[in-house]
Design a binder for these strands. Structure first.
Length: 938
RNA sequence: GCGCUUGUGGCGAAAUUGGUAGACGCGCCAGACUUAGGAUCUGGUGAUUUCGGUCGUGUAGGUUCGAGUCCUAUCAGGCGCACCA
């Protein structure tokens, strides 16, 4: 019987869809398992062969879990908001909703061909109002919340208001943009607008001033990589650093919880480390420095409080508010010139050229330990956004301070016994402290670690400062001047943002006349006519009606890409609920994602935001789990394997790879789809492009051999392999098997179509196991001992592999078992059916087909996963290697249950033994049961 | 610079707690069947060899009866963070 994969696969594709085989509902009688893939952005290019890698791996796991009796949730959807659709819209006028719709249709078609067990009834799209309703809803709640440090949780903003009314800011311990200080009386005397401004300092979603790359000509904020040499990459327009009001999320409030949570989840060490790095916790000391000859003082942050006696200057960040305060009259012009110069440089430039720059402020600070006067400088190597934006510089023990001191000829005082600071600073936190003594306090003779602790203690006890933990993690900037994104449920009254009532959500994205910014530099939503909020009607109205009494302008920015992807895993649990993001029942049943599969490029983006978002939802009682993703597996990237042809210079003649060195040639990328096993289809090449119509070839052995290289899979390299073509030629099951066989899931590897025949041959051999000629060759006969051994060996291997998510070694196990069963001419229904169930997660179509041919009416995925029994794996006799001092010499046959003494005897009685023992003395004999006999000789 | 990670045939890769290195697939070689083969099936395939062996898991040491696996140093590639005080 021929293995007709086309017929089989199209039949089951249809059946599964019609019967809704993969539809899932909460079922308290079964344990749940939630498998999730990072949902794709539906790009216009469609899927290439690398995209489904993770989907296939998780699909196998989902099917396996189902066979194990779990109720498995395995949903799929689309991250549908994104820049490419918007840019396409700007160029063509085509509405992004329309292109997105088309791309999704194409993705769906491609995904359907691969045979995934997704429950498509749960599909979500981030651009669907029914979906972004809950993105807006979560934002709204963030706006209405503050973060209490004491209870480590988000709380309703009313609680904060009530507290401010009673006690003002006294003893307030909450997450905040800056530390404010006022009494209850002062608060109560504030106007409504003033109060709202103050509250902005505490809200979890807040409007804040941040530095951005602003391009006035384009009317938009640009990312760092969109700016080179101070001008925009597109168009070459000047870009300036500008403080702008942007929506922000107070992610930093959750820094410690995001850090602690990492210890509770099953992610790879490298990914956890990346996140720890990104959160960047550092324990240090905040110290107060008085300004010489003034009542003013300022605070710095340091992790090296022990180096206080080596401070020879102070440095302020140019953007720090202290700059204006501390610049003296005489230095004013020079400082302003410097500030103007630093403003022009982008962050990226500053980091890349690493030139030492700076200017003296004119002021001096007083060292709180020694009373010495220290000059205060301004330099852009100090960042305004970290710590307090001011540092104490210790050039002897910090390489950046050292470079600065050398450049401006400032003194360098070493503080560690025996360290040499003539050429470079001594940054290591080790050694014995010296030169560190004042009248009241000495660190001399202590180790650095002891000195840090002693200084902290002294500083705290003497009111010079406090112990402080700082995080590198910054608040997320949450507005984008773009059209194709979620609108904010915000309108402005008296210039202050107001949130829409909950029942008015979703606020739908309006139609616009064009997708570009307006002439006045407003974001694209400024082009929308119907974009004002009527607080009486509670409805969107024409913006011409704005009267600042009952009708107000709506927010013009939209949310960034990560907004929609931050809580989609919760929405899948209950995707059609129009009363809540997720119902309590659904959430308590599915809890959190048990297995999350996706690329590691999201380590510091989506995977941080999503954890933050979930923790917030946990705080407000929506999500019942602290961590959204229990286990995370990063699939590697599939790279392209490009093919080259070699054209002889100034001719239209191409020379085969092996002969190219005899000519002066230029390599040219050639479409990998007209190359097979590195042999070029010359006719296809001639018709590939008009200029190659009359191409001539110099062949080797009658073939044109192409060169190859591993590169990124991309259109321009002509190395994109479309899964549709593989499915067409070999079938989805072969594609699935081959993708898993290619190598470990988490490793990046090039796609190489050359090996795919092997996977196809395996499936055909497996199919043939069930037939004799045209007839089914399966019988209700008792399985032979050898059959059971092959089967149970397979069950053991496959079960163990799937549990640890390493399928690349299961595929060979299937190949071996298939060969063995074929050689044994196994006809046993019992054995073959179990083998079928084992293969079903990997190759669902072929297994479902055979399962039904064997007379089953239910889907194979309702069968039970076979358990293996050690008793079938036992050997009667064992072949053991015998080695002499570690070098294997011969093998012996012993009974499986032989005692060590018997094994020893058998080893020494072997005819070869005498040869190796000649003139030698046995020191000892080591017998490792069932493994090896090692005779140590002298 | 700091952190993580990986180095095994012509290629993708296996290898349990340290126990016969290279499973399985590709490629290659030989054979069978074929008018034919870019189809199918069978066998072989780390290097070297005086056919006894010898050498082989990036490199150099170490521990051990025994090391791809453990330890120390070092080299190379990949990824992440990067003036974070």
């Amino acid at each position: 019987m021929e293995y007709n994969f086309k017929e089989i696969e199209s039949r089951w594709r249809k059946q599964w869809a019609e019967l809704k085989t993969y539809k899932v509902a909460e079922d308290p009688s079964k344990p749940k398992y939630y498998v999730l893939n990072m949902f794709p952005y539906p790009s216009g290019a469609g899927l290439h062969v690398g995209h489904p890698l993770g989907y296939i791996a998780s699909d196998i796991f989902a099917r396996y879990k189902r066979l194990r009796g779990f109720n498995v949730l395995n949903p799929m959807g689309y991250d549908a908001y994104g820049l490419p659709a918007e840019q396409y819209a700007i160029q063509t006028g085509q509405h992004p909703a329309k292109t997105t719709e088309q791309n999704i249709a194409r993705y769906r078609e491609q995904l359907d061909k691969i045979g995934f067990c997704f429950d498509w009834d749960r599909e979500v799209r981030t651009c669907d109002p029914q979906y972004y309703h809950w993105t807006q809803w979560a934002f709204r709640r963030m706006f209405l919340s503050f973060y209490c440090n004491k209870c480590q949780s988000a709380r309703p903003i009313e609680e904060l208001v009530a507290r401010l009314e009673q006690k003002g800011t006294e003893g307030l311990d909450v997450a905040q943009t800056e530390e404010l200080s006022f009494t209850a009386e002062e608060w109560n005397a504030m106007t409504q607008k003033e109060k709202e401004e103050v509250l902005m300092n505490y809200r979890i979603a807040y409007l804040g001033e941040t530095m951005v790359n602003w391009c006035p000509k384009l009317g938009t904020v640009l990312a760092n990589d969109e700016v080179v040499d101070g001008v925009s990459v597109r168009g070459g327009h000047p870009v300036v650093q500008k403080k702008m009001k942007q929506w922000c999320l107070r992610v930093s409030a959750y820094a410690q919880r995001l850090l602690d949570g990492l210890d509770t989840i099953d992610w790879t060490d490298s990914l956890k480390e990346t996140q720890r790095n990104w959160i960047g916790r550092s324990e240090g000391t905040e110290m107060e420095f008085k300004v010489a000859g003034s009542e003013d003082s300022f605070t710095i942050f340091t992790t090296r409080a022990d180096t206080i006696f080596g401070v020879t200057f102070m440095v302020l960040a140019p953007a720090s508010d202290l700059v204006a305060q501390l610049t003296t009259h005489e230095q004013k012009a020079e400082v302003e010139e410097y500030l103007a110069a630093t403003k022009k440089r982008t962050e990226r430039e500053r980091i890349s050229d690493r030139k030492v720059t700076g200017v003296f402020s004119g002021s001096y600070a007083v060292n709180p330990f020694t009373g010495e006067s220290i000059p205060i400088w301004i330099s852009d190597y100090v960042l305004a956004g970290y710590g307090t934006g001011a540092i104490m510089a210790v050039p002897a023990h910090d390489s950046r301070d050292y470079a600065f001191a050398k450049h401006f000829n400032l003194p360098i005082v070493p503080l560690i016994e025996g360290c040499d600071v003539s050429e470079e600073s001594f940054d290591a936190k080790e050694g014995i402290v010296c030169n560190s003594q004042s009248e009241k306090f000495s660190l001399n003779g202590l180790t650095v670690q002891e000195a840090i602790a002693a200084t902290k203690k002294y500083v705290t006890e003497n009111g010079l400062g406090r112990v402080k933990v700082n995080y590198r993690l910054r608040d997320a900037i949450f507005s984008r001047q773009r059209y194709w994104g979620e609108p904010f449920p915000i309108y402005y009254k008296n210039g202050m943002p107001q949130v829409l009532p909950e029942e008015c959500l979703p606020l739908e994205l309006p139609e616009v006349s064009k997708f570009l910014p307006t002439e006045t530099g407003e974001p694209p939503l400024g082009n929308a006519q119907l974009w004002a909020w009527d607080t009486e009607k509670n409805a969107v109205v024409d913006k011409a009606l704005v009267d600042d009494k009952t009708v107000f302008p709506l927010e013009l920015s939209t949310m960034p890409g990560f907004a929609g992807s931050s809580a989609y895993y919760l929405r899948y649990m209950d995707p059609r609920n129009d009363k809540a993001l997720v119902s309590r029942e659904s959430d308590e049943y599915w809890k959190s994602v048990d297995l999350y599969v996706g690329g590691s490029e999201h380590a510091t983006g989506h995977l941080i935001y999503s954890r933050f978002w979930n923790k917030f939802l946990f705080d407000i009682g929506v999500s019942c789990e602290q961590e959204p993703f229990r286990k995370l597996v990063n699939q590697g990237m599939i790279q392209g394997r490009s093919n080259f042809v070699y054209i002889i210079k100034d001719t239209n003649t191409f020379v085969s790879f092996g002969l190219k060195d005899e000519y002066d040639t230029t390599p040219i990328h050639v479409d990998v789809n007209i190359v097979q096993n590195d042999i070029l289809d010359v006719e296809a090449f001639r018709s590939w492009r008009p200029e190659y119509k009359d191409a001539e070839f110099i062949l080797e052995d009658g073939k044109y051999v192409c060169g190859w290289a591993v590169e990124k899979m991309s259109k321009s390299m002509y190395n994109v392999v479309n899964p549709d073509l593989i499915v067409e030629k070999y079938g989805a099951d072969t594609l699935r098997i081959y993708e898993m066989f290619l190598g470990p899931i988490s490793q990046s590897k090039p796609w190489d179509s050359n090996g795919i025949d092997g996977s196809f041959r395996f499936l055909r051999r497996f199919w043939n196991l069930f037939f004799e000629g045209e007839d089914l060759a399966v019988a209700d006969v008792a399985p032979g001992k050898e059959n059971l051994k092959s089967l149970h060996k397979l069950i053991k291997k496959v079960t163990e592999d799937i549990e640890v998510f390493s399928y690349n070694t299961s595929v060979p196990a299937f190949m071996v078992a298939t060969t063995e069963l074929a050689q044994q001419k196994c006809r046993s229904r019992e054995v073959l059916e179990q083998a079928l169930v084992l293969l079903a997660p990997f190759a669902p179509h072929i297994c479902e087909e055979l399962w039904h041919r064997l007379g089953h009416s239910e889907t194979i995925f309702d069968a039970a996963w076979p358990e293996y029994d050690e008793k079938y794996l036992k050997e009667d006799t064992l072949t053991l290697p015998v080695s002499f001092s570690g070098k294997t010499r011969y093998t012996i046959e012993v009974a499986a249950d032989a005692q060590n003494a018997e094994v020893e005897k058998a080893a020494l009685e072997h005819p070869s033994a005498a040869k190796y023992l000649e003139g030698k003395q046995i020191v000892k004999i080591i017998v490792v049961p069932k493994r090896i006999v090692n005779i140590v000789i002298k």
